[in-house]
Design a protein around this nucleic acid. Structure first.
Lengths: 328, 328
DNA sequence: GCCGCATTTGGAATCGTTTCCACGGGCCGT
DNA sequence: ACGGCCCGTGGAAACGATTCCAAATGCGGC
């Protein structure tokens, strides 16, 4: 392994000077800088991270804890985040909790002990009993947690958008299938739904179903809704899995989408656009989320001061699954 | 930060002894071991990874390079691998190449420079022009690459299984939509298809379409196949995205699946089982792949000797998308 | 009772970087 | 012309672990 010392010897300078060049210190003459750079190139020198870490107590490593990396939404988030961090010479260590709070705690602890410089967390639930292991910069993504800095979508605005869109088609009985409200995103989506339907005078408690973010629950909830005395003409789900479940529940009852009932998803996954009918869905700005998150984190690491986080506006991806309500 | 020194002082021993306890050296008296353990516990000591790395030149960090982490297949692989490695106290750094060979090379280089102890690679193409950066243990997953040790599914057996299954239903014109054959998995799947159809005497060159592992190509290829003078009665795709594309191409032509045509996927993603009709698909043993891969890697790191890799048998997940061919 | 061997222990060197301190030399102002 | 400054540089200490070497201890055999 070629070290700073070798570079110093080769370039006829000292380790101090080489290090200064490496770190872009201004206190180095142009001629020395060039000789050092040449030597670095010649010897194909790469600084030893372990030694740097030991000296500076920074690892240029961040951790990402997600509840389910097989979900393409989190996959896309991880990809964007990793790319952003690479660009700043940070590595990203992945941990998947499978929606288990216990595993989340373990991951937090393990990553903390490993000495990552910062931790991105998509919390399983929004209850604030997590221990910030070693006072490491912590940034939440997608789902918020207490007063931690984080980047999230404007979930209220998202469902509001969906409600307005459906209302615009003429729907009046708009139901919602919502995720577990222990999770901030689900709670906010429900809130946006409630606020907007109330404002439009079409709110009804009986049109709300709360449960897991899963295909199975989407299906079950949809079946319940279809059993209501006056069935809804449109449904807004809290993610695309639920929406697909709902879609299939309708298919199972012989209902056509969107002729008989309209369905709107949440996430805007690529998958959803490949269904038939393709899903109309509230689309979250995943890569912006990653970019902002990374920026926030780097700021937090470098300066120690918390930027305030961000709430990103969502968009509606128009598919074929929403249309006018059936005439009655 | 509490160090070895502090522990030594607290326990009335020396750094040497503490280190020996930490590393399970046998040359430590029972009484000393207990005092040290007690001190470690009391002071809540955690060894500093950077210092360990510097001294031992091992980072207990591995890298994973995948072509597309938003694909739930690779998501599942990453999750299983991460879990397995955590259990052995290794962290996993994620890199996503978005199927770009250039990004793959960059990632290989960056992870090498970062000093990971080993590298898991799902290569974008199987052409062997990648440079193993610093002679780091390299294990391929899913897709093979030259003579590198790796773990893969038995893709020939997989398609063979699918062909036999469809043949058993009575199908004789069985087509295949295959991934890019620069990729080993696609090449092998094609091979298994060709071998088995030939053995059954139903091979026909005109029933093969090769292209990207994408929804779009699946759809396009299916449309081409449907335009053939004598259309196939069954199709085997090379992954689930292609299969869904094929499904939609059929739907677009008013063909019912499986009454008019049978479709079989490859991967066995959860998504596929949620379609209607649910997809019959060749299922790969993802977590076994991760377990074997991790085992291989750890062996390679500890002993330097390459285990031979493994080829894992696949299974068929029966869905609703395959049935008897239409009577003619 | 003493010598020697085996077992445990303490302490120092080492890994490769960053950073601080001290020194030498050129330049400016008086 | 001389004193003070500032800039560039070399060298050494420090980060916190592992590991080697030598010393100390205890034990059995003669």
């Amino acid at each position: 392994m070629v070290t700073l010392h070798d570079v110093a010897k080769f370039s006829g300078t000292s380790v101090g000077t080489v290090s200064r060049v490496l770190n872009g210190s201004p206190h180095v003459s142009e001629v020395a800088r060039l000789r050092v750079l040449r030597a670095i190139d010649e010897l194909n020198f790469t600084p030893n991270r372990a030694a740097q870490s030991l000296r500076t107590s920074r690892t240029t490593l961040a951790g990402l804890i997600v509840p389910d990396i097989t979900n393409s939404f989190f996959g896309a988030l991880a990809r964007a985040l990793a790319r952003e961090l690479w660009a700043h010479d940070y590595g990203l260590i992945l941990a998947d909790t499978a929606e288990s709070l216990e595993k989340q705690t373990e991951a937090l602890d393990a990553l903390g002990k490993r000495g990552v410089d910062g931790l991105f967390l998509v919390p399983t639930t929004s209850t604030r009993d997590i221990a910030n292991p070693l006072n490491i910069p912590l940034v939440t993504l997608d789902r918020t947690l207490a007063d931690l800095p984080g980047v999230t979508s404007d979930n209220r605005q998202g469902t509001s958008l969906a409600v307005s869109y459906l209302h615009g088609w003429g729907h009046r009985r708009i139901a919602t299938i919502v995720g577990p409200t222990t999770c901030s995103t689900a709670a906010e989506r429900l809130e946006g739904y409630a606020t907007t339907t109330r404002a439009l005078g079409i709110y009804s408690r009986s049109l709300i179903r709360e449960g897991p973010f899963s295909y199975a629950f989407g299906k079950q909830a949809m079946e319940e809704l279809l059993d209501e005395p006056t069935r809804p003409t449109a449904v807004i789900a809290s993610n695309d899995s639920q929406a697909i479940g709902a879609l299939h529940a309708c298919a199972g009852r012989g209902l056509r989408v969107p002729q008989d009932i309209s369905i709107c998803g949440f996430d805007g996954s690529e998958l959803a656009s490949h269904l038939s009918p393709s899903l109309t869905s509230v689309k979250q700005p995943i890569s912006t989320m990653a970019t902002h998150g990374a920026r926030l984190m780097l700021e937090l690491i470098e300066t120690g001061t918390a930027g305030s986080g961000a709430v990103l506006l969502t968009d509606l991806t128009i598919g074929e699954s929403c249309s006018v309500p059936p005439s009655h």
